[in-house]
Amino acid sequence: MSIKTKRINRVFEAVLWIFSIVTIYPILMVLFTSFKSKGESSYMSIALPSKWIFENYKTVFEKNFLQSLSNSLFITLISVVMIVVLAAFFSFIIVRRDDKICRAAYKLASLGIIAPFAALPTIRLLQHMGIYGSRFSLCLVYAALYMPFTTMMFTSFIKGIPRELDEAAVMDGAVGLRLFVQIILPLLKPAIATTGILSFMWVWNELQIPLYLLNSSSKWTLPLSVYNFYGQYSHSWNLVCADVVLVSLPVILLYVFAQKWVISGMTSGAVKG
């Protein structure tokens, strides 16, 4: 690398660090504000709290937080398992069978990425089925809505697995479910990790769909309860910020510990189509 290139790179590096303030500033602001007093918190800045008030978190915690947390966990975990498992099966058959029906199914699935959420027709459907408002109905809807995207990632991944492996397994008598579970599934681990983490983040963060589909506050997910909390306490930024920190904590932890999968998966799955 020439000296000139090195110098240019150093300038670029400095520029990126300066720009990163735009990312970091609001995040730190929320974090610090969550420890401020109500009066101090109305002035939005990155200044440290003059007195650290940890009780903000306690206050927020006592406002039905655990109920919403358990709803969020229930809904997210079941949805993620469904999204990942169903998409894995679906993609396996689509890619390997590769006949007219399968290609049509893939095209329809791509429509699932494009089309907006048909909110009221879905509500009506769930009402007819007698499950409207239940937490599990939300999981079913998530499975249907997020499966197209995970299917796209799985199909590109499965295409990278040589067919010869299947053929060898078939020689040994493994077809259908056995072929999938014993041969393909173990190879899908990286794709499962990525789609699992991404769909966890998407489902956990979702606001629009629970807003339409959960009618009783006892079933509310965390984002929904935070949104309502903001409606009631919009002048207590310290409490709102504490709520924001709490609702973000799981995805932040997940990102910190599983960053590798998020990034590698986003890139391999989404790019190569």
Binding site: A87, F89, F90, A105, L125, V141, A143, A144, M147, V175
Partner: peptide, 23 residues
């Protein structure tokens, strides 16, 4: 026979009922 369609039946069903039908 190696890749029977029924393995994709449940995902297809969920997709059809909860996405395609309302949409």
């Amino acid at each position: 026979k190696i890749y029977p369609l029924y393995l994709a039946a449940i995902p297809a069903l969920i997709f059809i009922v909860f996405f395609l039908l309302p949409s």
